[in-house]
Simulated scan of single mutants.
Amino acid sequence: MARRQERWERLSPAWEVSGEVPAHEWSDVLHSDPEALASQSPAWVEAVCSFSSYVDVSRLYRRRDGSRLVLPIVSPRFMPPSVASRLSMPEGCSTGGVLAEHGRLSREDLAVVMADLARRPLASVVVRPNPRLGHYWSDAAPWTTVRDVHAQVLDLGGGFGEVWPHRFRSSVRRAVRKAERSRLTVERDTTGALMADFHTMYTQSVIRWAGQEGVPPVVARLRAARGESLRKFLTVGVTLGPACTTWMAYLDGEPAAGIIVLTQGRNDTYWRGAMNQDLAGPSRANDLLHRLAIEDACERGMERYFFGISNPGSSLERFKAGFGAQHVPYSDYFWEGLPLVRTVHQVRRRAYRALQRTDRVLRRAHRGSRRT
């Protein structure tokens, strides 16, 4: 701890640090940073703290020349500071990382931020940065765990007149035309009114995705109920307001597919998506929704459409690449006093394997009882 304090004292003379970020200063920095994402906004942090057991502990850093950095960060509400984590952002709550006034970010800035955090009696620091800025973080601290992640980002330069014919693959354009000829109807909302329909479909999708990964249905349901509740979606929709757009496609009145897009500055982020596979697959509802969301982004002057993360070579990555999204490798960073992240992941893997074995036994018993 003494060594960390000494490091901070060497770096700190050029900086003024505040544990409270006035709303107007956060807003100033947010709107001046061309790389800023919706998940770095004060509204997003307010939403995260509302639907989960976190408290806002964001920090403001002011250089001697007056320019500012803001680190949106949260901590577990009911844990003492000496054992609490600092998360920017928690898992399932999109990306965090530092906002820099006018986009003036350097590796030296991040070294100062991490030196400030490391001098405090914290259990861990987690940073899930903007994919386009992930490389700045690699030397910011002696990270105990670095987890490789892969994102896809679509450049909207030139507008939809450039994106549609030159970045969308022909297969996606054909899929969109098929969807436009179908009986699909599309609704767009920025009030949260479509969140209930979206959440019902999203929960079904989570269970389906988990089954594809070999996760037992009971675990998938618990995971969805805990981490992806309707309250979470409604809170995001209401708190972000016009910055959160829900697109829903209906086939003969039945929800077929939905996506949620978050907006900040010149960047749109595809945050969540779900579908009824039996309806969305044949109608190509997902292709249509992304086409509409991307066209809408272009009309509003957006520069980038963040497609989120996906595994290289997966069907999800191929789907996103069809719209012209480019592969962006980056990392999530963990600094820990104790190797908790690795331990938690090992415990989860063992628990999943045990539940998978139990699930197989129960399935065999069920099939046997049906035969008799």
Rank of each mutant, 00 (worst) to 15 (best):
D252E: 15
R181L: 02
S205R: 04
T263E: 12
E187I: 00
V238N: 05
L230P: 08
C244K: 06
D189A: 04
S205F: 05
S283P: 06
R231K: 15
P282V: 04
R284S: 06
F198Y: 14
V186K: 14
E213Y: 13
V206M: 15
A220D: 08
R221M: 03
T246V: 11
A274S: 14
L230T: 06
L194D: 06
P242N: 09
R181W: 01
V261T: 10
G241N: 09
E180D: 06
D268K: 11
T190W: 01
A280V: 03
V219K: 06
R226A: 06
S229Q: 05
I259T: 13
G211H: 14
Q212G: 11
L222S: 13
Y250A: 02
R181P: 02
L222Q: 15
R181M: 00
A249S: 07
W247N: 06
W271N: 10
G273V: 02
R284K: 14
L251R: 09
E228M: 14
G227V: 00
T239I: 00
E254P: 01
F198E: 07
D278T: 11
G227Q: 11
A249F: 02
P255Q: 08
L240M: 14
R226Y: 12
T263R: 14
V206A: 03
R284G: 01
P255A: 05
R183W: 11
D278F: 05
R221C: 01
M201K: 03
V206K: 12
T185A: 11
A224E: 09
T200N: 12
R266M: 07
A220G: 12
P255V: 02
T245F: 08
L234Q: 15
T203E: 13
L230R: 15
T235I: 03
S182P: 09
G227I: 00
G237V: 03
G192W: 14
W209L: 12
L194S: 04
E187L: 10
A193L: 09
H199I: 01
I207E: 12
V186D: 08
R231C: 00
A193V: 03
A280H: 08
G273S: 12
Y202I: 00
D189L: 02
E254I: 04
V206E: 13
N276D: 15
P242L: 07
V238P: 01
P216K: 08
T263V: 02
R272G: 00
M248I: 07
S205G: 03
D252L: 00
D278G: 05
G214R: 11
V218S: 09
T269W: 10
Q212Y: 13
A243T: 09
G273M: 04
W271M: 04
R221V: 06
T239L: 00
A243F: 04
R181N: 13
V236E: 07
S283T: 15
A243P: 02
M201F: 05
D189C: 03
Q212R: 15
R181E: 11
D252T: 03
C244I: 01
N267C: 08
